[in-house]
Amino acid sequence: MSKAAAIEAVNLTKQYDNGRGCRDVSIRVGKGEAFGFLGPNGAGKSTFVKMLVGLVTPTSGHARLLGEPIGTLAAKRHIGYLPELYRYQEWLSGEEVVRLHAKLCGIQRKVADERVPRLLEEVGLGLRGRDRVKNYSKGMQQRLGLACALVNDPAIVFLDEPSSALDPIGRREVRTILARLKAQGKTIFLNSHLLEDVEALCDRIALLNNGVILRHGSVSEVIHTRTRWLFKVGGLSPLLLEALREATGLPIRLAAGRENAPDSLNGLAPIWMEAELDNEEQAGWMNALIIEQGMTLYEVAKAKERLEEWFVEAVSGLSQRGERA
């Protein structure tokens, strides 16, 4: 295995008696890379992460974290992990929980004295860290989980749905923290349904469905990014639309999902058209053609194909429930 890999899994498999789990998952995540792991509910994402962090023993295959076999103490020293479903000891205060994790990681008290309050501040708990965990909301528990995951200053951070219970401000804070971690050179393995988080942070992604990787690669590779342009025009008629298509050779159409009035093609009301263009020059040419044809151009907008659309398209038509016949 390459020394440069932070995470390297080869045919990692976990088969449960009920047929769930994941099969022959092979991935490689480089040091300092942010990797997004996507898939519908029950796809086997959490099982895969649990194998990597030593909670679940693989049925077959092997993996290493920074060259250390998964499940070993040496591998665990490199990681911070925020599980998806978890609770901390509710009879402890938030600060005591983070200190407990620091102790388990062998962090000296002096270091913990400096680091724990700083982390609590960073994740937005601050002095609420002195409250008992039993009084925490789900969002506060998630913030506490993030502080625990980072207490040992890990080289690899595994995050399983890190912001699913957070409000929009909390999500933005978590995204900022993750961006900072990435800037510090940490390797981030992100399991998330919040695709905008994945899109904003991750360099590469993999899509898991029914325990098997369907696609993987860089974000732009896997979603085949094409730029979709939107034009809001007045005076469009079916004849003019056909003339535009002939002139450009592009599949120009009325924009889906836009509120186009029923009689808009008779030229009375502004209308949204859309076209997939290779570059901005083509967009400029389209603008010129629209003006030349005597139409009014109100607005031009660029809309990238979103990860969410790609995700839905990739798993549509496939069984996602892992049922056995």
């Binding site: 909670l55 103490l73 665990k76 479903l85 901390y88 990681c105």
Partner: peptide
């Protein structure tokens, strides 16, 4: 069941 172990056992402790 509560998920306490899921958070604790990935720590470097046998």
């Amino acid at each position: 069941e509560q998920g306490v172990m899921q958070a604790m056992l990935p720590r470097p402790i046998p």
